[in-house]
Amino acid sequence: MDVKVKILRYNPEVVDEAEWKTYSVTLQPTDRVLDALHKVKWEQDGTLTFRRSCAHGVCGSDAMRINGRNRLACKTLIKDLNPEKEITVEPIKGLPVLKDLVVDMEPFFDAYRSVMPFLVTSGHEPTRERIQSQADRDRFDDTTKCILCAACTTSCPVFWSDGQYFGPQAIVGAHRFIFDSRDEGTEQRLEILNDKEGVWRCRTTFNCTDACPRGIEVTKAIQEVKRALIFRRV
């Protein structure tokens, strides 16, 4: 089938303003949006620039705004997009655009790195593994699925208007450790998230949950962190 793909192009080496360009590509209904982008790049215009790697939704490289919604290009099938109409593709919002669909990921990773996203323990290490029940392991399972694609953070209206806000992903990253029974860094992590740019900025619009390509209940995780802050226990 012939599909029209409208892409927001921007290369500061060449133009001052981003502009929409429309491309016609022949695709199968089961092709992914990433296939459409590749067809443009490989057959029509080699200057089209985007990040991608695994192409099946686990590496988190190709989050973009497709028909106005944050998704992974490699996990979005053409047939699910009403391809009779033009498909629009633009970079995720709230991070500086560097070229075409490539944004500056550093502010996003900075937020993640600031919440101590690593296991904190004290005392002697056990000889064998730390014991953890499967129920305790299941407690934080949802947030371990995060692939750091930024689809959630860049779908958040609070983040769009206030780039200082940690954003949903950083809270998900903290949640994964706060609710891990082996971890002893909860107090410090909660203090970081208690900051004025922390969890309290969340307005529960659920954009993040809708955007997550891994199906993580992001808003729920944020609510759990808020509750942990109020009651000071997990």
Binding site: F118, L119, T121, E125, P126, E129, R130, I131, Q132, S133, Q134, D136, R137, F140, D141, T144, F177, D180, R182, D183
Partner: peptide
């Protein structure tokens, strides 16, 4: 020990 969340047996 680095924190990897392995699946667990009944004994943990």
């Amino acid at each position: 020990k680095m924190g990897l969340p392995f699946n667990r047996t009944a004994e943990g």
